[in-house]
Simulated assay, not measured.
Amino acid sequence: MNSAGIFADAFGRIREAVHETVEGLPPGLLNARPDDGANSVAWLVWHLTRVQDDHVSDAAGTEQIWTSRGWSSRFALPLPEDSTGYGHTDAQAGSVRVESGDLLLGYHDAVHEQTLAFVHGLDGRALDRVVDESWSPPVTLGVRLISVVCDDLQHVGQAAFVRGVLSRR
Rank of each mutant, 00 (worst) to 15 (best):
G106K: 04
W66M: 05
V41Y: 04
E23D: 13
L29G: 06
V111H: 01
D54C: 15
L145E: 01
G157M: 07
M1V: 11
D82R: 09
A126P: 03
V111N: 02
H19C: 10
S95P: 12
N2E: 07
V156C: 11
L122S: 02
V98F: 11
A10I: 14
V162W: 08
H88S: 13
P34H: 08
H55A: 10
I146N: 02
L48P: 10
V51K: 03
A159I: 04
G94S: 04
P138Y: 10
A59W: 06
S100E: 12
G164A: 06
E81W: 06
D53Y: 08
I65F: 11
C150P: 06
I14Y: 03
R169P: 03
M1G: 13
L30N: 06
A59G: 09
H155F: 06
A160E: 04
L153P: 06
R97L: 12
G12M: 09
S40E: 08
V98Q: 04
G142S: 06
F7T: 02
Q64P: 11
V143D: 05
Q114D: 15
S72H: 11
Q92I: 06
Q92E: 15
G61R: 10
D58P: 00
S3Q: 14
R50A: 01
Y86R: 14
P138F: 03
A17R: 13
N2Q: 06
V162L: 00
W71A: 02
V41M: 08
D36I: 13
F118I: 03
D36K: 09
R169W: 13
Q154W: 12
E113T: 14
V130Y: 05
N31M: 07
G37L: 08
H47T: 10
G124E: 14
H112D: 04
L116W: 09
H47P: 10
I6H: 10
P80Q: 01
S57T: 14
G164P: 06
L153I: 04
T89P: 06
L104A: 05
V56Q: 11
A4T: 00
V156Q: 07
G85C: 00
E63C: 12
F11Y: 08
S147Q: 13
R163W: 09
V56G: 11
A8W: 07
S100P: 15
W43K: 00
P78S: 05
N2L: 14
G106T: 03
H88I: 05
V131G: 02
V98L: 03
D102C: 07
S68E: 07
A60N: 14
A160Y: 00
A60G: 05
T67A: 13
V143Y: 09
R13F: 08
H19Y: 11
A76C: 05
A38R: 08
D109K: 01
Q92Y: 10
E23L: 14
R169Y: 10
W135F: 14
R69V: 04
T84Y: 07
D152K: 01
F118M: 01
